[in-house]
Design a protein around this nucleic acid. Structure first.
Lengths: 329, 329
DNA sequence: CTGAAAGCGCTTACAG
DNA sequence: CTGAAAGCGCTTACAG
């Protein structure tokens, strides 16, 4: 595999008959202070480096210095899917920008179902995990082995203490129910997806909590990506005037239901999507997109873990409702 | 800096009194075929690796094996700028996806004006350069030193043979002029920006060539990002019915000129933007977004360079006109 | 089947 | 000011 043999410090040392230690000192920019090299030697080294075309090998440099400045962002999701690209883009940008601020380089890894290659994550000093794939035994292995990992979105792994950052659903869901109360809405339809991951569990828990607190009756149905509406579901939807949606893409199904039944959103029926506007919520009230902030926060956490600093107090990114036609106050 | 001392192959070898060569064989998954290790030793190693929490160090692995699977994408542009994010996103996705197909990991680097850190690009085996920054002496140094580099967009560096991929402007600009001819338009206004980079030069060259070929008169003005229109410019714009724009953001200025003068695009005035739709061209005819394809092509070229294969014949990505209200056939 | 040794390219005390 | 030597963590002929 040694196809691309590049010029090394050794080559330069040989070329001009000087020890490679000295070459290293000059070429790594360490001269000055304690480390002195004569002007003449220095120039000879610089000249030879230029002439031979020396390019430093950072792999080797890092091996020696155990540099912590390379992190990776890892996901199993299929990035060829445009929707997933959109879903992740802002997180990535947040990681990238915060990484730059903290002096971290970012390796984006997305290798599906291939243990050998996913382990390439260990090129870096730590990783941020994005995505909801559940069956990721090698990630669990990394977590178990104390490889520095920060998950985006609450994530529990049995028997392991995981680091994660997430959105603060509590406050924004409380805001939703307060507005419902103020509007005197006493009964809503909760449109769930069948996703069982922690973040969705959290949302549902808060819906339950605040609906009890404000004494609002909640009926629920499940609508998934490929769902067609059953008679029962349709009746429940006709029966209720306010819908609370789990997922943004449910709104497509709902919108077409409205069309079929000549109902108008914001006039006949109301609703809120409990996600941010990563996929264009259109006329639906949803919360603001804080994905960049979340990516940045994850990066900060990882940075602190790597450098054995105390984690930031902030672990949850606050969310705000963006009121649109589907539910305006 | 050795804060995060991790478990190494040595640690495992010491733990169970076996040579670290054997540990390496087992843990790198090399056993089988010529390389045999007794079941008993293997299990001991696996157990200890699990118990101590071994995570391989890929830096060291790569140093030994001079692995070519890490490439980087490099730019000096400021990624905090949302417009620039949009401008680059599709390229990045293209690189990322093609990289995955070719088994390359991608390091996204964006370190501005800092030689020390931009040289971190040498962590990888080669780089794709995106962006139009002209004053990049360290990139030139890398190019001079034969560090494998592929530029996105034609790019000439004096005295150096550069690899680059780009869009095929010729065919799409010929298509523009053919349509003009068919519509019997004999006179157009070319709205240039003052950008002097190779891709814009290319476009202008083809405009000149095809306008001569089809005998279409071209007047021109320069409009930049922060321009206000001069009287002369306004007169030229009133005088002409068809505008050819260099850059997508010029359309904002033109649109507001239309508004001020109660002119309607697609009715009173016509035009085409000679860019793709990365920033929403609105009603303007422009060409299709092939940035993913371009990113993928750059990745392929870099892959071939790294592996000393012949470069793909294809170096230019073809473009198609997307006809919209501003100029429809 | 197992291990001693050389080496990937570099850095850094340390001695001269 | 300069260089010999050890070592970062790993792999891989090679010998036993």
């Amino acid at each position: 595999m040694k196809i691309n043999k590049r010029v090394t410090i050794q080559d330069i040392a040989n070329e001009i008959n000087v020890s490679y230690a000295t070459v290293s000192k000059v070429l790594s920019g360490k001269v000055g202070g304690n480390i002195r090299v004569s002007e003449k030697t220095k120039n000879k080294i610089l000249e030879a480096s230029e002439r031979l075309g020396y390019v430093p090998n950072h792999m080797a440099r890092n091996l020696k210095n155990s540099n912590l400045s390379l992190i990776s962002v890892f996901t199993y999701e299929n990035m060829e899917n445009e929707e997933i690209q959109k879903e992740f883009f802002d997180f990535y940008i947040g990681v990238y920008i915060q990484g730059e601020k903290l002096g971290l380089d970012v390796l984006f890894l997305n290798t599906r179902k291939n243990i050998a290659s996913s382990s390439r994550v260990t090129l870096s000093s730590g990783a941020i995990m994005i995505g909801i794939e559940r069956d990721d035994s090698d990630i669990k292995a990394l977590a178990k082995r104390n490889f520095p990992l920060v998950f985006v979105g609450r994530r529990e792994i049995e028997g392991i203490q995981t680091s994660w950052v997430g959105f603060n659903y509590e406050i924004v869901i409380s805001e939703i129910f307060e507005s419902l109360m103020r509007k005197n809405i006493k009964k809503i339809l909760f449109i769930k997806s069948s996703s069982q991951t922690e973040p969705y569990d959290d949302k549902r828990r808060f819906v339950e909590y605040f609906s009890n607190l404000y004494n609002i009756e909640v009926d629920s149905i499940i609508i998934d990506r490929d769902s067609t509406l059953s008679e029962i579901q349709i009746n429940k939807m006709l029966d209720n005037d306010f819908y609370l949606l789990d997922r943004i893409w449910q709104s497509i199904i709902i919108d077409s239901f409205f069309k079929d039944n000549s109902l108008i959103l914001g006039k006949d029926k109301y609703g809120i999507i409990m996600e941010d506007d990563w996929l264009n919520c259109g006329k639906w009230t949803c919360w603001n997109n804080q994905r960049k902030e979340l990516g940045a926060l994850a990066t900060e956490h990882l940075f602190c873990i790597l450098n054995k600093k105390d984690l930031p107090n902030k672990k949850l990114v606050p969310l705000k409702l963006i009121y649109k036609e589907s539910f305006n106050i």
